[in-house]
Amino acid sequence: MSRSLRRGVLAATVLSLSIATLSACGAGNDAQTLQVEPDNAATSVGDIKLQNVTVITQPDVNAKGPAVVAATVFNNGAKDQKLTAISVDGTGQSAKLSPVGGGSGAVSVPAGGSVVLGGKGNASAVLASGREAVKDGNVQPLTFTFSATGKVKTSAYVVPAKNYFQGYGPSQLPQPSGSASPSGSAKPSQSGKPSESAGPSGSGTPSASAHSGH
């Protein structure tokens, strides 16, 4: 075989291997790589999908008070469903559900749509005794109950209402347990009028630095 012929055969072989490699990569992307799930708590049962499920506690580890369940609930079905309950497995505690606009009761999840739990202007799910029900750093099993799908079990990360989660945390922020309560011996201002700067030390409203855009 001449040198030029050998070079032609070698080039054809390299080209064939390159095409085969690219084809294999394409199949891999379709089958596996493009189906990588995000690194957060997510569960699908029937038409319902739960994503970004998180229990958010008080920002101070020693503070007692409510916690909230934050999540995005998707309804891929053709009929509306209602989220009727969220329970904390193993504790006997359930969250108080409030739809958008306030009040209490089931949260509607529209057909082909979604609803967000937690954050300003969204539906909410509040655990009255957060510190008794969950512990920061744990992965807590929860059960969501829907009108048609029934019970959907999932797990949620338990995190304090700090940094990214500050805007999604409990709206009630009590003083840490054991801290001094406001003293009744405070002296009035010399003018006899309340000082303009006076006000509750813990207003219970989220900090202005909260991520209201999430």
Rank of each mutant, 00 (worst) to 15 (best):
V88L: 10
T21E: 02
Q172I: 14
K79Y: 07
T145G: 01
G150R: 06
V55D: 07
A133T: 07
P59T: 08
P59M: 02
P110G: 06
A31M: 12
I86S: 00
S147P: 02
F74Y: 15
L15S: 13
L173G: 01
T72D: 06
G92T: 07
I19A: 14
G103I: 04
Q172Y: 11
A85K: 09
A133F: 01
T145A: 10
T154Q: 01
F165S: 11
V88K: 06
A31H: 09
Y157P: 04
G199S: 00
S4F: 05
A70E: 03
A78T: 12
V139E: 08
N62T: 13
Q175H: 13
Q140A: 03
S177E: 14
Q81S: 10
E37F: 08
A133C: 06
A198R: 00
G213F: 12
S44T: 15
T33F: 15
S2F: 07
V36Q: 14
G118P: 02
G202V: 05
I86T: 01
K153D: 11
Y157K: 13
L117H: 01
V69Y: 08
P59L: 07
V55K: 04
G204H: 03
C25E: 14
C25I: 11
T21C: 02
F144R: 04
S203C: 05
G121F: 12
A27D: 08
T91A: 03
A148C: 01
A128K: 15
D80N: 15
S104H: 11
Y157M: 14
A128S: 14
A71D: 05
L173Q: 12
S44V: 13
R131H: 06
T21K: 02
